[in-house]
Design a protein around this nucleic acid. Structure first.
Lengths: 341, 341
DNA sequence: GAGCGGTATGTGAGCGCTAACAGCGGGAGA
DNA sequence: TCTCCCGCTGTTAGCGCTCACATACCGCTC
């Protein structure tokens, strides 16, 4: 490795001098753009490799006004849902020259705002952001930025530009319908205590709406925050069953606490789904392997990620102008924890 | 929102014209650098806000030769271990002006190489990368790049620069020691089929070494790839117990498949830990809530993330030159699935 | 052999910002 | 009164690359 100089960062000029062509030609070779003769190309590549040259995208992006980055702003990485969205995004982006960059907000609108500011300051060529609810400042930034935006996960609201997601309100209603149809009447809800988890909120609203249509209302509810979801599910379930023994159905805001609840019920020797039914939300594959399969509803996470990435990468032919609006439809997976009708 | 012009991206000049000072002064205000009088500062901030100006970090980084990005290269986001490392990193970086940017390799050395190339082309001010094993090209790039590098998770090998992690070999040995001490003799291993998961490999090597010291060897082993870990754990366990009924201990390469195995054993009514013991690896908090607590070994994930970020952000006072080398020591959590001695 | 189209290469300007330094006014000290 | 210095602001010159264009050269045709 011939590095005589005291380490100075390499530039295009170093490569061009090393192989006797102009910087422009080196640039063309390294980007595969424009015509370069085969021998020249070889010569340049050899020189670049032997020097260990890595192009400076900062300079390149400034000069070309193009950045191959796509910002992805999500609330969390620690529940299983967003990694799967990321997988969908990566799958599609891997086929392009675009690269995802993730930012995590921890469900805080203020953090979202600052993550957004930070991202926009890198002038990404697209932005994928979870949810439809943003601060005024965030909306203003996005509008001003001129960057294509896809809001994902949720479609109950008004998108800024494009949107891909499911209706959580409808998902809640559907689940309520199935539960009521199966004959359960004393239904409790167990969820996370997160004022900014708008999707969980909308599911619960839809759920209660549908119950109301049948003249029912929740017999009890329990919220938690932090800690191991499985354990919390167990604890909350015990609390509810102790406090409201008439409960015959437990609706959880996610599969993880639902699984905790299910394990509790099984350990306690309760008759599931005869005496008591359970359902979660997400379709978390992770949990396949528990003796009884929890009723749930697939949130189309992979597909949401894919579609969003397709819109950004221009693969989705959106008529002409204006944003795309894609509603996906989750399917109810009754599992083994709802009585068959 | 006064945006008369047909949307043209805003620059410092727009802000400076809007408030009648030089670009330099605006730049100083927006970066909180250098002396600016209070009234000027206010005027500038007001103008910037009302225009919705977001600085262009690409240009800024090029001019200042400083980038507030830290690359984080990890094999996967879908098992629970790396998100926790990320949490540790974020915790520390949030107190600085640095921002993590993650890249995922899917345990492929070639992908690692290309992710690395991509990252280095943004000239990050630090790099955190999982593992000590990299392709020659990767090592060359890193050496050439002049970027501080912290290799995390593993310390059984020679770091390029700094390293923070645990000895997986030793972890394997320790677990074997505990198992043998508890009187188990017919021990099987269940793990992932991933030639590039060097840490799992080293754990197994350490484990077998220690068994050998006691004149023992594995009675059986089973590997999987893909699918739901919980379910795979269940299936593999069943397979092993059918094939090698004399097995009295199951050592899993991670807690998730371990939990699947545990659920299988409990469902099958086996006497745990009397007739058969189980142990995993990671200390996955996620799984608290299963009726029986799986024996495991905490991998210090949070702490590893924190320490690595501290090194990059310069909070860790590393004597003077040369990389830091930090070994952490996992603790064995016997849980309820190893016989008490 | 002048004119043409095409391929392969080079040239100059400038992307939006910041480092370094230069200027400018005014109060303190000689 | 003349410095000297300090707090504030402006000026100049790039950072390393890419764009748009200019140029050189080749083999053709008519």
């Amino acid at each position: 490795m011939p590095s005589y100089q005291p380490k100075r960062p390499l530039t295009l000029r170093d490569v061009s001098e090393a192989c006797g062509v102009s910087e422009m030609t080196v640039s063309r070779v390294l980007r595969n753009r424009g015509d370069v003769s085969a021998p020249t190309r070889e010569k340049v590549l050899k020189a670049a490799r032997s020097l260990g040259y890595v192009p400076n995208k900062i300079a390149g992006a400034l000069a070309s006004q193009r950045v191959n980055l796509v910002g992805v702003i999500i609330p969390s990485l620690s529940n299983m849902v967003f990694p799967e969205v990321m997988t969908g995004i990566s799958e599609v982006l891997d086929g392009t020259d675009l690269q995802p960059v993730v930012g995590v907000t921890n469900y805080s609108p203020d953090r979202e705002e600052s993550v957004l500011y930070e991202m926009l300051s890198w002038r990404p060529s697209g932005l994928i952001i979870a949810g439809l609810e943003h601060t005024d400042a965030s909306r203003a930034m996005l509008a001003q930025s001129n960057v294509p935006v896809v809001e994902i996960m949720d479609i109950d609201g008004t998108p800024l530009d494009s949107a891909v997601g499911i209706s959580h309100r409808r998902a809640g209603r559907q689940m309520a319908e199935a539960i009521v149809a199966a004959g359960y009447r004393n239904i409790a809800f167990l969820g996370t205590q997160m004022p900014n988890d708008h999707r969980a909120r909308k599911r619960l609203e839809g759920f209660e709406e549908e119950l109301a249509r049948h003249g029912l209302s929740l017999v009890d509810r329990e919220f938690y925050s932090g800690g191991s979801a499985l354990l919390k599910g167990r604890e909350m379930t015990q609390a509810i069953l102790q406090r409201s023994p008439e409960t015959d159905f437990l609706y959880y805001s996610n599969d993880m606490i639902g699984a905790g609840g299910l394990l509790y019920c099984l350990d306690a020797g309760l008759d599931v789904p005869g005496k008591i039914g359970l359902a979660g939300f997400n379709g978390t594959e992770l949990l396949d392997g528990i003796s009884r399969k929890l009723a749930t509803m697939d949130a189309c996470r992979l597909e949401i990620g894919r579609r969003a990435a397709e819109i950004i990468s221009g693969k989705h032919s959106t008529g002409t102008a204006g944003g795309a609006f894609i509603e996906l439809f989750p399917t109810l997976q009754p599992g083994d924890t709802i009585r068959k009708i």
